[in-house]
Design a protein around this nucleic acid. Structure first.
Length: 887
RNA sequence: GCGGACGUGGCGAAACUGGUAUACGCAAGGCACUUAAAAUGCCUCACCUUCGGGUAUGCGGGUUCGACCCCCGCCGUCCGCACCA
């Protein structure tokens, strides 16, 4: 990596270090990537997930930008008006951590990082419209976000609620459910605690069904992502059932809910005859009422709140219950009563916070029943099972089957039994209410957006003791973050910023306080793609511009955003439509999730991580330290990370090999959705190929026809083969790029280069000079390959174009048209199978009939030998594909 | 526990809708050019073979004229969710 592969002198090599900045300057000065909204050409909107400005990027960050750039450049060549913007997801905790650790203001830290990362991105030669650059921490950006918040407030899509929140004790902040991973904070890794706070919520659950249904329309999204969202939304159909208390076993009058019932949610009404108990959540209102009078129950409830929320803790946590002494009547069998427990495994925020337990057919209920010696009555008989032999031991049966021990349900299949129970309970009444009500439940919860943090978008609300929370009047927006804050104490600096915080109530004028919570940074990224559409700073969310550009035709980013960012963005777009701000519903028509770039890791004898440039590679898995030759431990490739030092800086690659070489390598070999390993060998190979293209184009320019020379009437074999390859290349690379199969596109360019190289060698070797047909084909091939590689290696393409003496920039050139005549073959080589194994080839005219093909095949020596004089049993001729002789 | 994806040479991989398995590259070996090296170009590169052919896409079955591809059952790897009634 330290070796300098750029030539110091001479013209027989492509000098990337000199050429790349030169072309970038030309692009910049001519402003060719600036996009106009009034451009009449068809639009194409491609964007990559914007980066968090954490400091410096490594080459691993570059992959998705390069992929998007290839598509953007290709679509431009195909005549589209391409929007390819860039911005910064600039609010967030690391800036505050830097402030705390190093005393630098979050704003200064962030803008410094943006400046250096912008420079690094520009180094990659990306065809971005930097005029539309946004930073979410800029008041010009978040002023609109505050307007959106007020819109949501007015439309009932934002609300405030006292709620138990996930409290991260390390970052001192509230986390959304989605930010809690295995019971730990997604960023700090600290075990999350439960606390009660008044929080702002966005009503994403209003859109649960829409967000679920519309997944089916997102045909250009990965199935995996759609499935993950489907599971996250978690729709289930079931029945709410009212259980009446048994006479003499009801709670005391002041604890009973008005209707004297317990409401339970179930997705398995068919198993109701197998019910052994009812269980309430420790947070259920009835539990609270009972606990107020029962110290023992209160102690049990308190006990339920201890213990970790980690996956392992939950997995191994014992099912615990508290018998309240209450009993309810079985809704389908008034003679039976069921005991009512409070149980630690029942969640208050799903369903009704109360369940009925059917031990035979639910594992948790079974564990619980065994522990508290409750009856286990099987009511679903698995298919092909002897009823006499069927018994539940330690494993509940949750499959399909036939109902038994269930009165009027006996003999029915599970789905029929569900329907039968539902119908009957819908007819029964408890007081005025039907005893059973069909109910759809979702796992999805409303989105808590309040964060007790400084470096985020202020929530534009003022709290007044008389008027309550009041939205900041729109003419007073933005509510800008105060700069004059300190980070020397824990907690939110905004709470201490008196001059900013204390303001009069906009309604009554009395002294009031600003909301000091800021918004979750996922809010910032939930509408930035809409912001990009506008080219008018006075209309950051421009309905017409959004209508023109959205949906995003191709969005590219990491799989880690499969749920959070992408679901929130889908919700935001719908919510904005509900507020009349936009007319679209789905923001991203096409989504692609790219793999990471991984790299080997190196450790010296003292166990310290080494950068790749500190290491000399000796062979597979063997390396030594460049400084002193001491041995180095090589470990398998991992995601590039600063802490393990297995990173490669874009500047270093650019200096040594050139940016195009890095781009080519990132696109080569590995399918874009998979992780790709950055290797020395790989980058060297890419460098050789970049040089090869440059050399071939230069030689072809020399040996080939003059620019614009007319096509000869006839072409010899070599020239025709080259023309076919060149036209085929243009067609196949177009197809590969449209399908984002960049590695295949690269392979096709390699294949072409082999044909091209042979033709150039033939031309160079001919004693009588290059024939006019070959000269024409060489020129044509050079122009076509220059265009075909243009989106991938744009600087090289400019250099080649200049060498060919062509007018204008490669970046603005049109994608060449492949001549269909040259793509079509008059004769076809058909593979001949005998009993399904390929044994021979036959060349036939394209238009040959199956009978003609069959006749020709039977004459083949290989077929005659295989048949050995017998008649074939069958001959299958698939026109223009294959022939199979069944002997 | 539930859900999903993947498994092809020494390595990264290709194979379009069931139709020539291993394209293309990397690594390795050989040759040419060169005083030499680098660079470049060319050749070889799944396994076995009696040179006819035979065997190979994780393993075992099935469907089909034909299966990396579809179906059933295993094994392995990776990912997502997770007390959701």
């Amino acid at each position: 990596m330290t070796e300098d592969r750029s030539p110091e002198r001479g013209s027989d090599r492509y000098n990337a270090r000199e050429a790349e900045p030169r072309w970038q300057k030309v692009w910049r000065e001519r402003g060719i990537f600036r996009t106009r909204n009034d451009d009449p050409r068809p639009k194409f909107f491609v964007m990559e997930m914007f980066p968090y400005p954490s400091g410096r990027i490594h080459i691993g960050h570059g992959r998705n930008y390069v992929m998007g750039d290839v598509l953007a450049r290709y679509k431009r060549m195909k005549g589209f008006n391409v929007l390819h913007p860039m911005g910064w997801d600039a609010f967030g905790l690391p800036a505050e951590n830097a402030a705390i650790e190093r005393g630098i203001h979050p704003k200064a830290w962030t803008y410094e990082n943006i400046a250096s990362m912008r420079e690094q991105l520009q180094l990659l030669g990306l065809s971005l419209d930097w005029n539309r650059e946004i930073a979410t921490c800029d008041p010009s950006y978040y002023v609109e976000q505050q307007r959106i918040f007020l819109d949501f407030l007015e439309h009932g899509l934002a609300y405030r609620k006292e709620s138990e929140v996930n409290w991260d004790p390390v970052d001192n902040t509230v986390l959304a459910n989605e930010q809690v991973i295995d019971g730990r904070g997604w960023r700090s890794g600290a075990v999350v605690e439960r606390r009660k706070l008044a929080q702002w919520f966005l009503r994403i659950t209003d859109f649960s069904q829409q967000l679920l249904d519309a997944l089916d329309t997102l045909e250009r999204w990965p199935d995996k992502v759609r499935l993950m969202q489907r599971n996250w939304i978690g729709r289930s159909e079931g029945l709410e059932v009212l259980f009446e208390f048994a006479r003499g076993f009801a709670p005391e009058a002041d604890a009973v809910p008005a209707d004297k019932t317990v409401k339970v949610y179930t997705t398995r009404p068919d198993t109701l005859f197998g019910a052994a108990f009812l269980a309430l959540s420790p947070d259920h209102p009835l539990t609270r009422a009972l606990a107020a009078k029962s110290p023992k129950l209160a102690a049990f409830v308190a006990d339920c709140k201890t213990g970790g929320t980690s996956a392992e803790a939950i997995e191994t946590q014992e099912k615990k219950g508290f018998d309240t002494g209450l009993k309810v009547v079985h809704p389908l069998d008034p003679a039976r009563t069921l005991p009512v427990y409070v149980a630690n495994f029942v969640l208050m925020d799903y369903g009704t916070g109360a369940i009925f337990g059917c031990p035979a057919h639910d594992q948790r209920d079974l564990d619980f029943a065994r522990k508290y010696k409750l009856p286990v009555v099987p009511v679903v008989l698995p298919p092909d099972t002897d009823p006499g032999a069927f018994a539940i031991d330690d494993v509940a049966y949750d499959g399909d089957g036939t109902l038994i021990n269930s009165g009027f349900l006996d003999g029915l299949a599970v789905p029929e039994a569900k329907e039968a129970v539902t119908r009957r309970l819908e007819r029964f009444h408890v007081g005025d209410a039907p005893q059973g009500t069909r109910r759809v439940n979702f796992r999805l919860r409303d989105w808590g957006i309040s964060r007790q943090r400084y470096w985020g978008c202020p929530i534009p609300v003022i709290h007044c003791e008389s008027c309550g929370p009041v939205g900041v009047p729109r003419d007073q927006l933005p509510v800008a973050l105060p700069d004059d804050v300190t980070f020397d104490r824990p907690g939110n600096p905004l709470d201490r910023a008196k001059a900013w915080r204390d303001v009069p109530c906009p309604k009554c004028g009395k002294p009031a306080r600003r909301e000091t919570d800021t918004m979750d940074t996922f809010v910032d990224s939930s509408w930035y793609f809409l912001r990009y559409a506008s080219d008018n700073p006075d209309k950051p969310l421009d309905k017409d511009a959004v209508a023109h550009w959205l949906p995003v035709d191709q969005y590219i980013g990491g799989i880690e955003h499969a749920i959070l960012h992408l679901l929130y963005s889908r919700f935001f777009t719908r919510a904005l439509k509900a507020c009349g701000r936009v007319d679209v519903e789905e923001p991203f028509a096409g989504l692609f999730t790219q793999g990471m770039i991984v790299h080997e890791t190196y450790k010296d004898q003292d166990g310290r991580w080494l950068f790749p440039e500190e290491v000399k590679l000796l062979g597979p898995g063997r390396a030594e330290k460049l400084a002193d030759g001491s041995p180095v431990t090589v470990s398998p490739p991992e995601k590039m990370s600063k802490s393990k030092r297995n990173v490669v800086a874009p500047e270093v690659v650019a200096d040594t090999y050139g940016v195009d070489c890095a781009r080519w390598f990132m696109l080569s070999d590995t399918p874009p959705e998979r992780d790709s390993e950055w290797t020395q060998g790989g980058i060297e190979g890419a460098w050789r190929f970049v040089q090869r293209i440059w050399r071939l184009v230069h030689e072809a320019a020399e040996l080939g026809a003059a620019q614009g020379a007319p096509a000869p009437d006839a072409f010899g074999e070599t020239a025709l083969a080259l023309r076919r390859a060149a036209h085929g290349l243009v067609a196949t690379v177009a197809d590969d790029v449209e399908r984002l199969r960049f590695n295949v596109a690269v392979a096709h360019v390699h294949e072409f280069a082999n044909v091209f190289g042979a033709a150039v060698a033939a031309a160079r070797g001919s004693r009588d000079g290059v024939t006019p047909d070959l000269a024409f084909a060489l020129r044509e091939a050079a122009e076509m390959v220059t265009a075909a590689v243009g989106p991938m290696v744009p600087h090289l393409a400019e250099e080649c174009r200049a060498a060919l003496g062509l007018e204008g920039l490669a970046a603005e050139a049109a994608w060449p048209l492949a001549d269909p005549e040259l793509l079509r073959r008059d004769t076809i080589t058909l593979p001949i199978q005998i009993n399904g194994k390929k044994r021979d080839d036959i060349v036939v005219p394209r238009e040959a009939t199956p009978a003609e093909v069959e006749a020709a095949v039977l004459k083949l020596e290989s077929v005659r030998r295989a048949l050995d004089g017998r008649a074939p049993k069958r001959i299958i001729v698939v026109p223009q594909r294959i022939v199979n002789v069944v002997a």
